[in-house]
């Protein structure tokens, strides 16, 4: 460490001001660590404590320790299980859709086509938009009176968001539209890294396109595709913005929305902290499963 510190050029401005390497480290690292402790670590530990209490931030009553009471109540609440079921369904629809659309687009773009750069940039635009804005304009697109989706699909005055069964699909379609470019981008990186000589060898061996895809392309892109799936699963699990804006159907009440209502509308602070930890455990568990698969794919 001391070696690294002495490598600074003696004629730098910092040296001229008389700031020691230690001072520079303290100036930059200590504030960052303090920031992380105050805004990340402390809330994490404090919320873990409140998860075991009946604390309500809207009252001046002190927090009483109730042990696993909140966890017990949440896990016995059929409505919470319904929220988990809805979220699981949403994650499956959304991530599957994104993988198919994103990977399909990457396959198309991984060949010589005119204006490839421009097309790729345009395709990336949805994921650069704010989810709240996306929610608002998709609400207009889905409008049964003047929305262009019904117009193009010839669905008349079909109510995408008012239909309890269709609403979740409508929200998932928006997520697919928004985040398929992310999967496309990672897949494109993976596809461009596949050695060309493997395809040449397959061609010499007269391998068909399906054989080439399943035996060369997919296995080599799988690790990076798995990373995309991990990221998108974690993100889809905590979807809030566009789902909250698009629909208030109970059939689209994802866990993040339920958590928000519990914490900031009903002010059940202790209960919502416990709920947040349950969600965290679920996400970590799912991610671990994916990581195991990722490691297997890498080993192959």
């Amino acid at each position: 460490m001391a070696d690294v510190m002495t490598r600074l050029e003696p004629d730098t401005r910092a040296a001229a001001r008389g700031l020691s390497d230690l001072s520079i480290r303290n100036l930059f690292i200590i504030p960052t660590i303090a920031f992380l402790i105050i805004f990340n670590v402390f809330p994490l530990i404090y919320s873990l404590y409140t998860a075991f209490t009946d604390y309500r931030a809207s009252t001046s009553a002190p927090a009483n320790w109730i042990g696993l009471g909140n966890f017990r109540e949440l896990l016995n609440d059929p409505n919470i299980w319904r929220n988990f079921t809805i979220t699981a369904k949403y994650v499956v629809i959304s991530v599957t859709g994104q993988v198919f659309v994103g990977f399909g687009l990457a396959m198309l773009l991984n060949r010589p086509i005119p204006l490839k750069g421009l097309i790729t940039t345009l395709l990336l635009l949805p994921m650069m938009l704010s989810p709240a804005v996306v929610g608002l304009f998709w609400k207009l697109l889905y409008d049964p009176s003047f929305g262009i989706i019904n117009f193009f699909l010839g669905l008349g005055k079909f109510e995408w968001l008012a239909d309890p069964q269709m609403a979740l699909w409508a929200v998932a379609i928006v997520d697919i539209w928004m985040w398929s470019p992310f999967v496309m981008l990672l897949s494109l990186a993976g596809l461009s890294a596949v050695p060309k000589h493997l395809y040449e060898a397959a061609e010499i061996d007269r391998a068909g396109p399906f054989y080439t895809f399943f035996r060369i392309t997919l296995p080599l892109v799988a690790p990076i595709l798995m990373i995309a799936i991990i990221f998108r699963t974690m993100e889809a699990f905590k979807t809030f913005d566009h789902a909250y804006i698009l629909s208030t159907q109970p059939t689209t009440e994802l866990i993040a929305i339920r958590l928000y209502k519990m914490a900031f509308l009903e002010w059940q602070t202790g209960m919502s902290s416990a709920f947040a930890y349950i969600v965290l455990i679920v996400v970590v568990a799912i991610t671990n499963i994916y990581v195991k698969y990722l490691n297997k794919a890498k080993a192959r």
Binding site: S58, T59, N79, A162, D163, P164, T248, Q249, P250, T251, E253, K261, L265, E266, W267, Q268
Partner: peptide, 23 residues
């Protein structure tokens, strides 16, 4: 009552599917 928000959440969750979805 102080817990009005919980009452409101439950009312919305029960009544909305009936009014809008006919459930």
């Amino acid at each position: 009552v102080p817990e009005y928000a919980e009452l409101l959440t439950a009312a919305n969750a029960r009544i909305y599917p009936y009014i809008v979805g006919g459930e």
